[in-house]
Design a protein around this nucleic acid. Structure first.
Length: 279
DNA sequence: TAGCCGATCCCCT
DNA sequence: GGGGATCGGCTAA
C-alpha cells in the first residue's frame, strides 16, 4: 500500500529526531478555573489554583490575546504557517486549562488537492466543517480509532491539520488523558515529548473528539487559540511533504507540511527538506 | 534504534 | 465492502 510505505518512511525519518534535553522542558503556565461543562471529560486532577476565571472570559480590563475570526481568514498555506507558534488552549470540564504551542501543521488546499477529504469538490456530512467559515474545526476519525483536528481556512474545502504541539501547561492532565486509551502500558509514564507529537496524540492530550467538529475556534469557550508570545519569528520553518498520503500521487510530494526546524516536539522530521531550507 | 504490523471502525462508493 | 491525514507494542540487531 503506497500510503503505508510513505508513512513508514516518514516514521523512519522521525525516529532519528534529536533527544530532548531536560533543559528544554517548557515550564507550565499557571492554570485557571472556569465553569464546568457537564459533558466534558474530567481529569480527576484537582483544578489548578489561580484566578477563578480565564482571562479570556473575564472583565473588560483584561486584554484578551485570543485570536479572532480575522486571523483564520487567509488561505490554507499562509494560515498553516501563521498557526506555527500560536498557542492552542483547552479548558476541561473541571476547569483545568491545557495549553500547547503549535509546532507542526499541514495545509490541505481544497478540491484540487488529491490528498484532501474535499478533493474533487466532494462535500459530505463528514467533511462539512472544511467548507464552513474560516476558523471552524473539522474533526474526523482516522483508522477507526483516532481523531484528527483541522481548522478551516479561506477557500472552499481548504483547511489546516494540526499535527504537533509543544506542551506548555496542564501536562499532568495531558498525561492522564493520553494514558486512558493506551493498551497494556499501565505503569509507564509518557515522556513530555510523547504527549502531543502527532495529530491524534494532540487530540487525545487535549480531549478533542468528534463533539468538537464544526465548532468555531474564534468563539468556543472550551477550545481557542492564543497569540504565541514569540510567534514564529525565532524559528526557521521547514516546508516538507505531508505525512500518510502516499495515495495522492504528485500531491503527496508537495511541501505543504510546515514545522519548526530543530523543535523536539515535531512528530516526523524530514532531513532532506531541512537541508533545502538551509540552502 | 529500526522496522514490522495489528488494532479498529467510520464513512464513502 | 474496503480504504484510511495513526499509534504504539514487539522483535531483532
Amino acid at each position: 500500500m503506497p500510503a503505508r510505505s510513505a508513512a513508514q518512511l516518514s516514521r523512519r525519518i522521525g525516529q532519528k529526531k534529536q533527544r530532548l534535553s531536560e533543559a528544554e522542558r517548557s515550564q507550565s503556565l499557571p492554570g485557571t478555573a472556569g465553569t464546568p461543562c457537564p459533558k466534558e471529560p474530567h481529569t480527576g486532577l484537582p483544578a489548578t489554583p489561580g484566578p477563578q476565571r480565564s482571562v479570556y472570559f473575564s472583565g473588560p480590563q483584561t486584554l484578551p490575546a485570543r485570536l479572532g475570526p480575522e486571523f483564520f481568514d487567509q488561505p490554507a498555506v499562509p494560515l498553516a504557517q501563521a498557526l506555527l507558534g500560536q498557542v492552542l488552549a483547552r479548558r476541561l470540564a473541571d476547569g483545568t486549562e491545557i495549553r500547547g504551542r503549535i509546532v507542526e501543521t499541514e495545509a490541505y488546499l481544497g478540491p484540487e488537492d488529491a490528498a484532501a477529504h474535499s478533493r474533487g469538490g466532494r462535500q459530505t456530512l463528514r467533511n462539512r466543517g472544511m467548507f464552513m467559515k474560516p476558523g471552524t474545526l473539522y474533526v474526523f476519525v482516522v483508522y477507526g480509532m483516532h481523531f484528527c483536528m483541522n481548522v478551516s481556512s479561506r477557500g472552499d474545502g481548504a483547511c489546516v491539520l494540526l499535527r504537533a504541539l509543544e506542551p506548555l501547561g496542564g501536562l499532568e492532565a495531558m498525561r492522564q488523558l493520553r494514558g486512558t486509551r493506551r493498551r497494556g502500558t499501565a505503569g509507564r509514564a509518557l515522556k513530555d515529548r510523547e504527549l502531543c507529537s502527532g495529530p491524534s496524540k494532540l487530540c487525545q492530550a487535549l480531549a478533542i473528539d468528534k463533539s468538537f467538529d464544526q465548532r468555531d475556534l474564534a468563539q468556543d469557550e472550551a477550545v481557542w487559540l492564543e497569540r504565541g508570545p514569540l510567534g514564529s519569528g525565532r524559528w526557521a520553518v521547514v516546508a516538507a511533504a505531508r505525512v500518510g498520503i502516499g495515495y495522492a500521487g504528485e500531491w503527496a510530494q508537495k511541501p505543504l507540511r510546515f514545522y519548526f526546524q530543530g523543535s523536539p516536539w515535531v512528530s516526523v522530521l524530514d532531513r532532506t527538506a531541512e537541508q533545502d531550507a538551509r540552502a
